[in-house]
């Protein structure tokens, strides 16, 4: 049985700094993997390696049976990997609706010549995209549809996060990478986020999710697969309870003295 995502012996060095040190893990279709670890442990670097922003110094990344190591980001996205960013990176001066339509970019088939000389074809395609985008916004838990003609930069924090997820879903990905989706959220918003992710999984049972999280309440909600990275090394992996009990993990988070206490 082949995994949807296979990260094999990936090492990423920036000069003398080892950001990722021989990381190996596999992921099945439809599963959720939570990645935890202290700040600067290399979690976001891992996302950047998977999405082709960085080419790893050593090792391979395989997605859906294809070697995607060092492939340009737009190619990786086209193959079905979508992501959100730690500090939400919306297209602030575009409307909420346009943000989602841009998210469908990989689904657009009309080329430059079609747009220039067969406007009816291009217009029909865009009209379909508008409909789909509106449907995605209606599906979202927040009041995004009602705000679809507002510039994305004027949304409230929680709605921005929702919009980023809706935009990522627009490309109909097989794997979605969420980089600290709960950052800057209060308790109620975090609960809503967990509900959002659960709903997402119910709606798209085939979709796999990798989640970088600091908030253990979110991780606890998806306890099947958790892995902890520290100083670029994978120090623990398994179910949440086991990872939490792991002395290395406690040491990484709390320091040696606390772990001994």
């Amino acid at each position: 049985m082949s995994a949807l995502l296979a990260v094999e012996n990936v090492t990423m060095r920036f000069g003398g700094l080892v950001a990722l040190d021989n990381i190996t893990f596999f992921m099945e279709k439809g599963s959720v993997l939570a990645v935890i670890g202290p700040n600067g442990a290399g979690k976001s670097t891992l996302f950047n390696v998977v999405t082709g922003v960085y080419r790893p110094t050593a090792g391979r990344v395989k997605f859906d049976g294809v070697d995607i190591t060092g492939m340009p980001t737009h190619e990786v996205v086209r193959r079905g990997v979508a992501r959100t960013f730690q500090s939400s990176r919306l297209f602030r001066d575009l409307s909420v609706l346009d943000n989602v339509i841009v998210g469908m970019h990989t689904r657009a088939s009309a080329g430059v010549l079609d747009v220039l000389f067969r406007p009816a074809v291009a217009r029909r395609e865009l009209a379909t995209a508008v409909e789909k985008a509106e449907a995605l916004l209606r599906e979202s838990s927040g009041p995004l549809y009602e705000q679809r003609y507002r510039p994305a930069g004027t949304l409230a924090q929680a709605d921005r996060r929702r919009l980023e997820i809706a935009r990522a879903l627009a490309s109909q990905p097989k794997l979605i990478l969420l980089d600290e989706p709960s950052a800057g959220m209060d308790d109620a918003e975090t609960d809503a986020l967990v509900a959002d992710i659960e709903r997402l999984r119910a709606q798209h049972p085939e979709l796999s999710v990798i989640l970088i999280e600091h908030d253990m309440r979110v991780v606890e909600a998806f306890p099947e697969h958790v892995m902890c990275i520290d100083y670029g090394r994978l120090i623990a992996g398994g179910r949440f309870e086991a990872v939490r009990a792991n002395p290395h993990v406690q040491e990484a988070y709390l320091g040696t003295a606390a772990a001994d206490a």
């Binding site: 922003v53 340009p72 960013f85 919306l90 998210g103 970019h105 935009r167 490309s171």
Partner: peptide
Amino acid sequence: ADEMAAKAQGIN
């Protein structure tokens, strides 16, 4: 608006 985010939407 954001080159990095544009790439992440599959834009070449």
